[in-house]
Nucleic acid binder design. Sequence first.
DNA 1: AAAAAACTAGTGGTTTTCCGCTAGACGAAG
DNA 2: CTTCGTCTAGCGGAAAACCACTAGTTTTTT
Lengths: 215, 215
Amino acid sequence: MDKVKVLVADDHQVIIDGLEAIISTTDHLEFKGGASNGKEVITKVESQAIDLVLMDINMPEMDGLECTAYLNKHYPNIRVIALSMHDNPRLAKRMIKNGAFGFLLKNSSKANILTAISEVMQGRNFFDPMLMSTFFDADNKKSSSSFSKKDLLTKREIQIIQLICQEKTTAEIADELSISTHTVESHRGNIMLKLELKNSVGLVKWAIQNEVIEL
Amino acid sequence: MDKVKVLVADDHQVIIDGLEAIISTTDHLEFKGGASNGKEVITKVESQAIDLVLMDINMPEMDGLECTAYLNKHYPNIRVIALSMHDNPRLAKRMIKNGAFGFLLKNSSKANILTAISEVMQGRNFFDPMLMSTFFDADNKKSSSSFSKKDLLTKREIQIIQLICQEKTTAEIADELSISTHTVESHRGNIMLKLELKNSVGLVKWAIQNEVIEL
DNA sequence: AAAAAACTAGTGGTTTTCCGCTAGACGAAG
DNA sequence: CTTCGTCTAGCGGAAAACCACTAGTTTTTT
């Protein structure tokens, strides 16, 4: 098998240098240069054969998201692994959506980086184990922080919240539960009080964060 | 290193048999029996030393979620890998939250199962690659449908949405942007029209799904 | 059996959102 | 230069949400 030709895109030269060190000292990998933003990446892939791009997300000019989408469309054979400082699941999702095959945190180990590259070149996905933890941790902090405001709510109140979040009006909810609109209003009021919320906009956000509703 | 003592919990004998075959034919693993529900698991770990439990989620009597939580509390040294038929990210999350170190789909390859066991015994997490895909795919279908209603909106409208989602009232938004409340209402109306929404509850959900706001 | 919590229902009023419709000002694109 | 889109602003009115307070009934807990 030929060497894997790797391009590194990051607006910090240190990162590029670090990755170059790792790539150059690995047998089956070939470092093909760096780019400091998305536009440069596109220029480079136009002029030389590239197999894989290690792509930072936050870059000036054209960011990693946009650039990945472009590569995915115009150079579907080029694999992209996203690089990020932050273990933000949402960002990861967006990169994957735009065509990245993997997601690495910048403080990842050399072993991880090499595994990621080989996995991705074999057409599989690779996600940084650290990212996975955050993924699952997201609400752990909240729920483990001894008490959640969720515990203050009764079953009926949870039910009302779910219906509100289904974009139902008070009248519709009352009808569905066969209770008076006054009762629903009463519940709604208690909910707002208990959760210290201003309006139903806040309620929806709370409900999603606390997994009372599915998005 | 000692052999890893594995217990398999599943209410289908076929699954137990299948996993027994895999475990028994692997050098460093030792099959220590099966259990058909959570209660049986607890009885077994009380009477014999167990290192790892392959735990089905859906079981009668005491399900995998409850049982995992129990083990995590009373036998923190016992590792748990969740087994499931369905690649349901939420279920996975809950299992992890309850203390499971890994998540495997039942149709996973032998290689995957063995990797999972060794990773988890080394204190790392392991998630079935299939699950990862679903994780990231979730909203792909929607957003990949070439056009998003987001494109219909103007910058100003996006801005208004963001402020609405910050639980601000029309008056507050008008004040912040130094425009009349009528203008804000006008924008709000246009937004609702363009996105075909019923009320601000739907708006918040749309905004989150389309990443106009962060949760 | 008593107390507490949850669910129910109401009155009465204020604020906010939602809806439709009109219309001027301004900049960009044709 | 005219057209288009956007942003702006207004009017009037209906619907829904929000707030405060009271109070009877049922269920759960002690």
